[in-house]
Simulated assay, not measured.
Amino acid sequence: MPLKRLHLHNFRLFKEKDFNISEGTTLILGKNGSGKTSILESLNILISGKSFRTQETKECIKSEQEFFNISCKGTFAEKNLLLNSQNSLSNRLKTSRKLDGSPIKKEDLYFLQIVLAKHLRLLEGEPEIRKEYFNSLMFHVKPELKKLNSSYQKALKQRNRCLKKGLSQAELNLWSNEVATLGLDLSKEQYNFFQLFKGHVREFINTASRLSSFSFLEEVDVTFSKGWERSKKLEVSLKDCIDRDTALGYTSKGPHRMDFTFSIKNKKASSNLSRGQLKILILLIFLSNFRMIKELVQSEIILMVDDLGSELDSKNLSAILEEILKIDGQIILTGIEGEEMHGSLKKMANFTQINL
C-alpha cells in the first residue's frame, strides 16, 4: 500500500533531496520554516494534482530556478506505483501516475487527508472550510454525485451572471428554475450523506469520550443546515430573496450554502471548548471519517497531520496519538524540533524519523 521514497528537485526550499517514508508511521521534525509542510505539499500534488497552499503550483519552484520535478515510488494494490509531477515557469503542472507502468487515475488511488492549520478552524471558521471537507468525503464515497454537483454549479453560475449583469427576467427565471430543480436533488443527496457522516462521528466520538482524556466530549451532536429556510421550498426561497440577490449580485440561498454545526451537551462546541479541546475534537472527526471511508469503499488510506503537537499538552498529545495509531493506513506527522511528540510516539510505535 504505502508511499516509500520521495524525491524533490527545485521544490520550495529543497534543491535536491530524497526522503524514505515508512509504510507505517513517519515523523518529520524541524524548526519553523525548515520545509516540513512542503514535504506534505509535494505528496499532495503528486496524488491530487493540487497544492493546498497556492492555486499556481509554479509558485512551488525554488527561488531562482525555472522548474521543479518531484516523484515518489511506492506500492498500491500490491503493484509498483510511480508518481511524477513537473512544473516550469512557462508551462502548467504535468503529473503522471503509473501502476506497473500503466496509467492510473487519481480517483482510483489513495484516500488522502491532510490536517492543516486551516482545519483547526473547521468548527469555528467560515462555512467554506466545512463544505470543502464534507464534499471531499461525499465525493469519495459517492463519486457519481460529482456530475450532479457540477451541473448545479453551472446553473448557479448562470443565475449569478443574470443577477450581476441585470439580464432579462425570462433568462433569470430560466436559470432560477434550473437552480431550484438541481439544487433540490443535490440537497437531498447532501442530507442523506450527512446522516451517514453524523452516525459515524457520533458513535466514534461518544465511544472515545468514555476515556478520561476525552470525557469533555460527552454527548456530542452535529446538526445540518441545508442552505435555505427549513420551512420553504428552494424555489420559493429563491423568489423571496430575489431583491437581495440582485443587490448582492449572487445567489444567497441553496445547497452551495450548506453547513453543519457541532455541539456538546446542546452547547455550540466552537464557543465552549478550549483551543486544545477543539483540536482534539477536530482530529477525532477526521479519524471517525477515515473509519467510515474504510468501511464503505475499502480505500487505502493516508493520513497526514501538520504540526500535531501545537496547542496540546503532553496528556492530550499522548491520548490523540494513541487514536491516530489505530487507523489502518499510512501516517505522516510533522512537529517542531524539541517538542514532546518524539518521546510520546517512541513509547507507542516504531516509526521512521526525518530530521530537517
Rank of each mutant, 00 (worst) to 15 (best):
K62Q: 13
C60L: 14
N44H: 07
K73Y: 09
I39R: 01
K62L: 09
L46H: 07
L89N: 11
L93E: 11
I47S: 07
S96I: 15
I39K: 00
I47M: 11
L43P: 04
K36T: 08
N91T: 09
K50H: 11
Q65D: 02
S51F: 05
S38Q: 12
K94E: 14
K79P: 02
F67S: 03
S51M: 04
S96M: 12
E78T: 08
K36F: 15
F76T: 10
N69T: 05
N80F: 13
I61W: 00
G74E: 07
T75H: 06
E64M: 08
E78H: 09
S63G: 06
Q86A: 05
I39M: 06
K50P: 01
S38D: 10
S42G: 07
F67I: 02
Q86I: 03
R53N: 12
T75P: 03
S90R: 08
K73L: 15
E64C: 07
S51R: 03
S88M: 06
F67D: 03
Q65V: 01
I39G: 02
N69R: 08
G74P: 02
E78S: 15
G74H: 04
I70T: 06
T37G: 05
L82I: 15
K62C: 04
I47R: 02
K36A: 13
L82P: 03
F67P: 00
N44C: 06
F68D: 00
S38I: 02
F68P: 00
L81A: 10
I70C: 06
N44Q: 10
K36Y: 14
S51A: 10
S85D: 08
N44M: 03
C72H: 03
L46V: 11
C60H: 05
S96N: 14
N69I: 06
I47P: 00
Q65G: 00
N84P: 03
F68Q: 02
T37P: 01
S71A: 15
S63F: 12
S48F: 06
E66V: 13
S42H: 07
K79C: 13
I47W: 04
R53I: 04
K73F: 13
I47N: 02
Q65N: 05
N91Y: 10
C72Q: 05
T75S: 13
L82Q: 14
Q65E: 11
L89S: 15
E56S: 12
S90W: 06
T57F: 04
T54S: 13
L81P: 01
L89C: 08
G74M: 11
T57D: 08
K58A: 13
G49L: 09
L89V: 10
S90A: 12
S88T: 09
R92A: 11
S88G: 12
S63Q: 09
I45E: 00
G74C: 10
N84Q: 14
A77P: 01
L93M: 08
K73C: 11
S96R: 12
N91F: 09
K79H: 08
F68K: 00
E64D: 13
T37K: 01
N44E: 07
C60I: 01
L40E: 06
C72I: 13
Q65W: 01
F67C: 03
